[in-house]
Every structure is written in structure tokens, then in C-alpha cells.
Design a protein around this nucleic acid. Structure first.
Length: 572
RNA sequence: GGGCCUGUAGCUCAAUUGGUUAGAGCAGAGCGCUCAUAACGCUUUGGUUGGGGGUUCGAGUCCCUCCGGGCCUACCA
């Protein structure tokens, strides 16, 4: 039995994520976790909310709540939605947890001891009206290059020129609009990533099987300009993990916190510690997943994320881990995704354009979304959601191919025999041929799932469903029944077993439907079909079942048109 | 500006990494079936692989160039 540690990029706290965010990390991670569990392996699947940073503070202020309270609430909201989508996290943690605070400070201390922390005094823009330092992008002004009046301090959106905040003409706070700004000196800690450049490069080079998207982004950062740059890991904020080296105060760093991108990946580890505490387990229970000196040697660690997260997972976080000099588990495989666009443009959180996770669940069950998103996962390039494509794919694949197969088999059995698996008759060469085909297809499905080829896995699964319809058409039990009811009984017995097989195989993609099928079949045998013939004799003659309700109702044209209008514009 | 990814049938995607005649699903057309959610099955139309040039016995795949789409460029996370 293998051991799989699986993490999804942790979603930021300041609102409900859209479908693009979902398909880029949490959903494929869940697919992989469910599959590996289905194969009987030991899985630790972790995710959390990423709660620190300026946007969280601002969102809380906008909501008129203390930031800690706001984050606690939003964590609850995101957690409930994750449940709604069937995301099977072993623990859904919080980067603001005491465990993460302790670990983050611990790592900082180790990095300091290793000589990998440098103190730098730098100049930053301070807004007196806001009472805070402003990150570059929170400063607005007129672009010195093109005259655009809403240029940001990091870049002008109009002419794309990169800017320094002090370049802006008539700079003002993007938060309050105040022009009462000044440049102040402030002291920060930098992680000396440049010292570890060669080590990181050798490590990346050893990962020849990673997606090109992952390695090319990593290499770009390693080789761009003067090579990998040191990175500031502290910020002048109130909300965050106080800067300490281990348990000790850090002279000169009073009132400062760690940068979110320093503490967020550490939450992957801390999340396991949260899991242990939540289940009353000792530290050893989570350390066996994360410490190679405490049992994690045989763990295979896979991360899932959108491409915007790749630099932090290929470079910053490994630099933290390697730099600590301690035997923490490094990631073995990074699966990264491109973006999902919405009907000709980007999903937009600010403009409310596209479908957000809560809205998606309001209009359709999770399985519809899971199936479409995963079967169209943006693996090789950006992908696009359109309502026409969604309607067509879901109706065809889920309602017609799979749902109708279940319907025709169970209803035929009920009307010609009873709601019991019929006895009598024998299967023959036709069934043997199907078993052979299914065996080949199931092994292909497994290969794609192991490789995290999400779209190919979906296509392979669909082909397995199709094989059932082809078989039925050829066997034609409705015709055979008239002259040879025993043979028809054997064919239907075989077909009912196919339904169970489909439920087990499909569970990683459409877990709710799989549950409903197994419930209807009155069966809790979820064993993976290592051996297809025996898997297809699990339901014995006389076994009672009920004809399930329509598994997937079709999306009507009216619904589709309604949703197209509803989600085109501003949310609310 | 620089770097990277991408362009294959009306649509969504494959193509064992340079190897026979570029394949699937959907959509379209025809036929069959009547168990089933107007579902299912079979057959079939559809391509100068974005354009042009080159290397090679052989190019969707490698090189050059042009065109289109996208991402990143280190203080959003």
C-alpha cells in the first residue's frame, strides 16, 4: 500500500472562488485523492484557507468586521462550499492557525541560523490617512509614460509599462484616495534564495517528468536576469504571523509580520498538525507524513495548483524547506494548470463575471460541474467555459451515456423480472469479449489517472460507459427475452453488475452519483476491479435493488439561456 | 521589450516524442433498435495540421520567418 500526500493550492480568504480557481487546484487534487483511496492506498489530502495579507485586511474593513472574525467566517463559508463540491479533504485548515504560526516562526529561525536571512532597510510608500504602508499595486496615479490616470504603482494597465510607485504623477492611495503619502524607511527580512539557486536548479532538473508548464516557469525564474533573486519575507501589517526566530523575539522586527507567501506553503505542513489535533492524535501521526526521519520516506507528495502559483511552489517553498537543513518532505510531483476562461473572456471576481462556486451549487448538483470541469481541465493550454458546451457535454455524457444506461437496465429488469438480480441462464462469448475490452479500458483509465492526465482519464471513463450501451444493443435482452428468458436474465444480471462497476470507477469524478448508484443497488462493495470478471459477479442472483431516480436530469435550453444572461454581468 | 506556452475537422481535444493513409467525442447526414432520460447502436460527410520557407528517405512533431491567442516578468495573492 502506497502512501500519498496530496495538497491543493490554498484559496485566498477574501471571497468565494470561481470555477476557474476550482478546476485549477482543488478539484483535480480531489480527483487524484479519491482515486488513490479507491485503489486502497493511504491518502492524506490537505487544503486550507490562505488568510493573511493586505487584501484580507481590506476585505474585513469593507465588511466592517475585525479581520480575525472576518477570516473565521469566510473560512466557514469556503469550507461549506468545499463540502458541497464533495472535496474530500482530510483536513481543511487555516493559515492563521497556531500550528502554522509556530511552524512559520520555527522555519524562520532555522533559516536565520543557516545564514539565509538578510536584513534590508528599504524605502516604501506610507499613507498617513490609511495608517499603513502601501504595497505598490495599492498606489494609483498618472502614468508617466502614457498619461493613463489609474496606473498602479507596479504597472500601468493601459500601456503595460512596469513602474515604480515613485514614478507615478499625483500618486494617491488606492484604498482611501488620500494623497498624503510619504516615503519612509523600513527594515525587512529577505530570504537569500540566490544562495540556493544551484541547489534548486539541480533539483528541478531532476524532475524530468513534470509538466512543461511547471518546469518552464521555474527555469525562467532561476535564469531570468541575474538569476534567482532574494525575496522579502516580512511585511508592515497588523494581520499575520508575528516575526520571530523560533520562540525568540527578532530585534528590529517588532510589529511586523511574515509575508503571506512565506507562511502560506508552510500551512501545508501545519495543516497536517491541525488534522492531528482535531482527531486527538499525537504529533507522530502527522510527522510520519512530513518528516523523512519520522516515517515519511515512503510518502509520495503531489501538489496541485494554477500556473500563477508555480514559482512559489517550485522555488520559494523548496528554498524554505531545503534551507532549514531539517528533513522535511519535499514535493515529488507538481501538477499545474492553465486558466479557465469564461465565454470569451476571463472570470472576474471584481466584475462578478462568470460562475462562482456558491452559485454553481445553487443551480446544479456538484457532479455536473465536476464532470465538465475535469473533462475539460486546462492542462495543455487555457480552456474556455461556454454554456452551450457545458449543456451539450453534460447532457450527452452524464444523462444519455451513463444515466440512461442505468435507467434502461434497471427498468427492464423490474418490468420483465423483478427488483432483484435475476437468476438463471449463462453468459457467453459476448460477455467474455466485453470483459476483455473493459479490462483493457480500465487499465488505460488507471494509467491516465496515475499520470494525472485528467482529460484523458475522463475520456477513458466515458469509453467504459459507452461499452455498456454497445453491449446492450448487441445482446438485445428485450428481444431474447421473448424466446429465451434465461439468457436474458444472465444478460441483465451482467448489466446490473456493470452498473456497480461503473459506480466504483466513476466515484472519483462524480462521487454523489456513484453513491446513489450503490445505494440503489443496495451494495457497499466499492472494491476496485483489479480482476474484472470477479468484479462483474459481485451482485448475485436474488440480490434486491431499487430502480433509482433519474441519475442526471438534462439541462434544458431554457435553463441554459437563463443562466447565460444571469452570469454575464455584475454579480448580485 | 524579454521569456515561455499555444494554434490540428464547424466545436472540444488526441496523435506512442521524427515513422505507413493525422485520430476520438460532440454537432451534421443516413440506417437500425424499441429496454431506456426523444435515449441507445451502426455507417458516414468533414483536414493544404495558422501562412511561407528549410533540414530529412520521411515533418503535425525539428529549424527560420511571418500571423493570431494566452501567460509570466519577482511588492496582489
Amino acid at each position: 500500500m502506497a502512501r500519498h500526500l496530496i495538497t491543493s493550492a490554498i484559496p485566498y480568504i477574501n471571497g468565494i472562488k470561481h470555477l476557474g480557481n476550482l478546476v485549477g487546484s482543488q478539484l483535480p487534487a480531489d480527483l487524484f485523492a479519491r482515486y488513490q483511496r479507491g485503489r486502497g492506498h493511504e491518502v492524506m489530502f490537505l487544503c486550507a484557507t490562505d488568510e493573511h495579507g493586505t487584501p484580507a485586511e481590506l476585505a474585513a474593513a469593507k465588511a466592517g468586521k475585525p479581520v480575525a472574525e472576518y477570516c473565521a467566517e469566510m473560512h466557514g463559508v469556503q469550507s461549506a462550499i468545499a463540502d458541497g463540491f464533495g472535496l474530500s479533504f482530510d483536513h481543511f485548515g487555516r493559515s492563521s492557525s497556531p500550528q502554522n504560526q509556530k511552524l512559520t516562526q520555527h522555519f524562520a529561525g532555522k533559516l536565520f541560523e543557516a545564514g539565509l536571512i538578510e536584513e534590508v532597510v528599504e524605502k516604501q510608500v506610507y499613507s498617513k490617512a490609511d495608517g499603513r504602508f502601501l504595497p505598490d499595486r495599492y498606489i494609483e496615479g498618472t502614468c508617466p509614460n502614457c498619461g493613463y490616470e489609474k496606473a498602479r504603482g507596479d504597472q500601468c494597465e493601459n500601456c503595460t509599462k512596469q513602474l515604480d510607485p515613485t514614478d507615478l504623477i499625483d500618486p494617491r492611495s488606492a484604498i482611501s484616495g488620500s494623497t498624503d503619502l510619504e516615503v519612509r524607511e523600513t527594515r525587512h527580512l529577505y530570504l537569500r534564495q540566490s544562495q540556493m539557486r544551484d541547489r534548486l536548479e539541480a533539483w528541478i532538473d531532476s524532475k524530468s517528468d513534470w509538466p512543461i508548464l511547471t518546469t518552464s516557469i521555474a527555469k525562467k525564474w532561476l535564469n531570468d536576469g541575474d538569476g534567482l533573486q532574494d525575496r522579502g519575507i516580512t511585511r508592515d501589517l497588523d494581520w499575520g504571523i508575528p516575526v520571530k526566530r523560533g520562540e525568540e523575539d527578532w530585534p528590529g522586527m517588532e510589529g511586523k509580520v511574515f509575508y503571506v507567501w512565506f507562511d502560506a506553503p508552510i500551512e501545508y505542513i501545519a495543516c497536517a498538525a491541525e488534522w492531528a489535533e482535531a482527531h486527538g492524535k499525537p504529533a507522530a501521526a502527522w510527522e510520519r507524513w512530513w518528516r523523512t526521519d519520522k516515517g515519511a520516506d515512503d510518502v509520495r507528495y503531489t501538489q496541485f495548483m494554477g500556473k500563477d502559483n508555480v514559482p512559489f511552489h517550485t522555488l520559494s517553498f523548496p528554498a524554505t524547506i531545503l534551507g532549514s537543513g531539517e528533513p522535511w518532505k519535499l514535493v515529488d510531483y507538481i501538477k499545474s494548470f492553465n486558466y479557465l476562461n469564461y465565454d470569451g473572456g476571463q472570470f472576474s471576481t471584481s466584475q462578478g463575471r462568470g460562475v462562482f462556486m456558491d452559485q454553481a451549487l445553487d443551480i446544479l448538483p456538484a457532479d455536473y460541474w465536476r464532470w465538465w470541469l475535469l473533462s475539460h481541465a486546462p492542462e495543455s493550454s487555457d480552456a474556455e467555459f461556454t454554456w452551450e458546451n457545458f449543456q451539450q457535454s453534460v447532457n450527452k455524457d452524464l444523462a444519455d451515456v451513463l444515466g440512461n444506461f442505468v435507467s434502461r437496465v434497471t427498468k427492464f429488469c423490474r418490468s420483465r423480472f423483478s427488483e432483484e438480480v435475476p437468476a438463471g441462464g449463462q453468459t457467453g462469448p459476448r460477455e467474455a469479449a466485453l470483459i476483455e475490452e473493459l479490462t483493457t479500458r480500465i487499465r488505460a483509465y488507471e494509467t491516465h489517472m496515475e499520470a494525472m492526465e485528467v482529460r484523458k482519464s475522463a475520456a477513458a471513463l466515458r469509453a467504459i460507459w459507452v461499452a455498456g450501451n454497445e453491449y446492450l444493443q448487441e445482446a438485445a435482452p428485450w428481444a431474447i427475452f421473448k424466446t429465451d428468458p434465461d439468457t436474458a436474465a444472465a444478460q441483465i444480471r451482467f448489466s446490473l453488475n456493470l452498473i456497480r462497476l461503473y459506480a466504483v470507477l466513476s466515484a472519483p469524478f462524480i462521487p454523489d452519483a456513484a453513491d446513489r448508484l450503490l445505494t440503489a443497488l443496495n451494495c457497499d462493495d466499492r472494491d476496485w476491479p483489479e480482476d474484472v470478471p470477479s468484479a462483474l459477479s459481485a451482485l448475485a442472483p436474488g440480490h434486491g435493488f431499487t430502480v433509482p431516480d433519474v441519475l442526471f436530469a438534462k439541462i434544458t435550453d431554457e435553463q441554459r439561456e437563463d443562466w447565460q444572461i444571469r452570469f454575464a454581468g455584475v454579480r448580485g
